[in-house]
Design a protein around this nucleic acid. Sequence first.
DNA 1: ATCCATACTGCAATCGATTGCAATAACGAA
DNA 2: TTCGTTATTGCAATCGATTGCAGTATGGAT
Lengths: 335, 335
Amino acid sequence: MMTLADIAALAEVSESTASRALRDNPVVNKETRLKVQQIAQQYQFNVNPTARSLRTQKSYTIAVIILFDAKSQQAISDPFLLEILGVIADELTHKGYDMLLSTSKTKDKDWKTYYIDAKRADGLIIIGQGEHDQRIEQLSHSRVPFVVWGASSGHDNFTVVGSQNRSGAEAAVSHLVAQGCKHIAFLGDYRHNEIEQRYLGYQDALQKAGLALNADYELITDFTAQDGYLKTQQQLFPLLPELDGIFAASDAIALGAMKALQEHGVQVPQQLAVAGFDDIAMSAYCSPALTTVKQDTINGGKLLVYKLLQQMDGEQAESELLPVRLLTRQSSARS
Amino acid sequence: MMTLADIAALAEVSESTASRALRDNPVVNKETRLKVQQIAQQYQFNVNPTARSLRTQKSYTIAVIILFDAKSQQAISDPFLLEILGVIADELTHKGYDMLLSTSKTKDKDWKTYYIDAKRADGLIIIGQGEHDQRIEQLSHSRVPFVVWGASSGHDNFTVVGSQNRSGAEAAVSHLVAQGCKHIAFLGDYRHNEIEQRYLGYQDALQKAGLALNADYELITDFTAQDGYLKTQQQLFPLLPELDGIFAASDAIALGAMKALQEHGVQVPQQLAVAGFDDIAMSAYCSPALTTVKQDTINGGKLLVYKLLQQMDGEQAESELLPVRLLTRQSSARS
DNA sequence: ATCCATACTGCAATCGATTGCAATAACGAA
DNA sequence: TTCGTTATTGCAATCGATTGCAGTATGGAT
């Protein structure tokens, strides 16, 4: 393995000059710079990132922390997660950063201490703030650069990037109403930030349509198809002749619900229309195809990275909620 | 930020002693050790991993590289991927390692240079060897510790962990045969290592059942539901009255195919039985529920980590294929 | 009293870069 | 000729730990 000293020797300059030359510091004579660079190239020299880190106190690494729900041990809709993770990875690579991934189940190290103070990472991207996470609140009182994917409370003192969950949900439910639904259930756990927004959107739509809210129609449901299936069987079947619509806070839940309905002989969408949220890969390919709300994963991932780097440059980064898109498919096609 | 020097000063010992004491080196007097440890604890001191890395030439970090198919830009069945990634992350954390994640799309740095030589990582876990990846072959000629998730050719000179794809596929197809299917199609891209094994298993089953192979029944299909849907429409519909079974190399493909069939009015499983591979979350909750083969993600992830660490300890690690489990559900229930 | 083994402890070099500051050279101005 | 500038370059300290080797003290054996 070559070191900077070797390159310097080969170029017949001091290490200082070699170091500066490699980073194209204009204080070094142009010819010298080119010579050093050429030699480094020739010998395939790369600076040792550890040594550089130690000296500069920067790691050129970003830690991505995936938050799991304390109870269900599940992250927000898995397929969505993988997608945004991919986008973030690409974006970081593109900007010259490495990505440290951590799936924070329960007990956990103190993020600031572990990642920032220990110089393992220069900034944090946190995905999925379950139920108002204390650790995030705490981080915001420190000087740690970080961004969060999730729902903005509107007055957070940290940067949030997320989807317009509320208006997206409203659009979906309004669509169900437009399809003639008058008794629409909500499936999801509104103790979770993002789901809460979807729940509020659901209420907005009902209100606008002049439909009454009905506590019996609101079922706290985990993120899984399984729980969607169970809750539907247990709590929606009794309401059935009257119930004519379901808005699920995630596609997985919606698919579970549809499964239960089909087994029970309920015609979707004729007797009951269903809409979900996420547009996971399967949604278009189940039967009937699921009406859902699609999040802008690509811009989401890019924005997270962009705003984090912005913070690391000492600038302020505003929170931002991305528009979503309603995709109407068979599961709600009653007309 | 405290440094080792501070702790040493507080404990009134030299840095050397402090360093040894912290790592519980028995050469240091027990009382001294305890005193140093106690002080470190009290001041919440943690050694700086960068400095340690520089000195020890170890990073206590493992790079996980997710390989994408060159053409489809897709990794092996997404949901499966996220699962195993989670297991690996937990397992590494548990062993005291950080995890550097990289999604290697197309062009890419040289893994050895970038991760190992630069000391960014002590070892590599590579997930999904698409079509015989040259870079892996190359790695195996170096001294880099690494393990691969995928299919073992049986005579690789590197460590592979994967599922018993062949026997799993055979079990699934034999099950279809047992359900009375005589004309079974295979959907998947057998240019991909793992899928090739599933394809061979498919052939095994047909052979054992005395059924003829038929090239018309073998459709090269991408990993997506979309492609399963398209290929089914385009190439299976013409064969339909006779065709009575489909074995898809992944659940996503199977679900796409089922969708096409249902739209076309084909009764699953009565007229045609379907089986997939993976047991993604949706498989149990689509209609009809999908018969499939479940991989042992948990042990897979654990084994990958275990065998990698084994190599890093200088030991030899054998390849290993994990048993899979056939889950029979409605999509193949013809009797 | 002398010598040696044993048990600790600390000095100082080292890992591989970066950077403030000083040193040198070259050049024109006074 | 002398001096201030400007352009380059290099010395040496520094980042925060780890570790080979030497040094000291203690106690027992002879």
